[in-house]
Write a protein that binds this DNA or RNA. Structure first.
Lengths: 155, 155
DNA sequence: TGATAAACAGTCGTGCACGACTTAATCGTG
DNA sequence: CACGATTAAGTCGTGCACGACTGTTTATCA
C-alpha cells in the first residue's frame, strides 16, 4: 500500500467513478451468470426476480412488487403480462379497491419454484464466497443504496 | 399441492438471492442519482460511462470500449452513433486495419469534460462515504465480478 | 496462390427501464 | 351528493442490452 495519497484535485473524483463502474459491471456479471440457468426454465433475469418475490409471498399487488424491485409500473406491467401469457401468474383487479391489481401464482408458477430451487446454490458456488461474506457485502451495498436514494429524494 | 413449504432449509439459498437483489437495486440507485446531473449536460448514464473512458484515454477502438464497459458491440455501436450525432466524438476506420473503428473525442466532446468534472463530487457526497470505504467496497465488488465471470466462462 | 478460418463492427428482433401522459377508481371536504 | 385531489395501473416513445446473424477485412494454411 502506498502511504501517500496523490492529492491532485479532480483525481480523487476518479475513485467513485470506479465504484459506479464496478456496480455496473457486477450487475451485468450477475445477469450473465443467471442467464443460462434461467434459460432452462424459460425466465429472464428480471422475471426471475419478480417470481422470487412471489415465491416468498404470494398474492401481492403491482405496487408492492414495484416498490420491492425498484421498478416503475410502466416497466413492471409488460413484464407481468409476459409472465401471465406464459401461464405462470394471474392478474386481477381487487374487488375491494378496483384501482389495484393483485398478482397471484398459478399452479404452474408455483411448480416452477421447485425447478428454480437449485439455481441460487449454483450462483453461490460461482461467487466462491461464504454466506457470511455475502451477507456482509450485501449489508454494505444496501446501506450505500439507501444513502443514494435518500440524497436523491431529499436534495 | 405443497402444504407449508415456508421455512424449509432451502432458505439458506435466499441469502445470495438477496445479494443479487442488492446489486440490482444499487445499480438502479446509481443510475438515478446520476440522471438529473447528467441531464444538464445532455448525457445518459451509459453514455457518461463511455465518455468517461474517452476522457481518461482518447482514441480508443470500439473493441476496447466494449471490453471495458462489459458491453457487446451491438449495444455500443448505436450508443456511440448517438454521441457522434451529438457532435461529441468521431468514428473512423483505422487505415492500417480496416476491421477496427477508432473513436476520438471532438473539441466539443473534450470540452464537455469540464462541465462533467463537478459530477463525481456530488455523487461522492450523496454516498456519504469516505474515499477509503468506497475503495474497499469497490475492491470487493470487483473481486466478486471477476469470480462470476470466471465461473461463467470456464464452467 | 487460392481456399478457409478468424476477427471486427454493424443490423435486426426481443425484452428491460424510464419519464410523461392517460384512464379509472377512491377519498376528503363541504 | 358534488367535485377536485389523490392514488393505482397502464400506454407510448426513447434508449439500453443481448443473442443471432451478416458483411467485410485480415490472417493462416494446404
Amino acid at each position: 500500500m502506498d502511504g501517500g495519497q496523490q492529492g491532485q484535485p479532480g483525481f480523487s473524483a476518479r475513485l467513485d467513478d470506479f465504484l459506479c463502474f464496478s456496480i455496473y459491471a457486477a450487475e451485468h456479471a450477475f445477469s450473465r451468470a443467471y442467464k443460462p440457468l434461467l434459460a432452462e426454465i424459460g425466465l429472464t433475469y428480471p422475471q426471475y426476480l419478480a417470481m422470487t418475490l412471489l415465491w416468498g409471498e404470494d398474492d401481492q399487488t403491482v405496487g408492492q412488487l414495484s416498490q420491492r424491485l425498484s421498478l416503475e409500473s410502466s416497466t413492471l406491467t409488460p413484464l407481468l403480462k409476459r409472465l401471465e401469457a406464459d401461464g405462470l401468474l394471474s392478474r386481477h383487479r381487487d374487488t375491494k379497491d378496483e384501482r389495484v391489481v393483485r398478482v397471484k401464482l398459478t399452479p404452474a408458477g408455483d411448480k416452477l419454484r421447485q425447478k428454480a430451487q437449485t439455481i441460487p446454490a449454483c450462483i453461490l458456488q460461482a461467487t466462491g464466497m461464504s454466506l457470511e461474506e455475502l451477507g456482509a457485502l450485501r449489508e454494505q451495498i444496501l446501506a450505500l443504496t439507501k444513502r443514494l436514494q435518500t440524497a436523491a429524494g431529499g436534495d
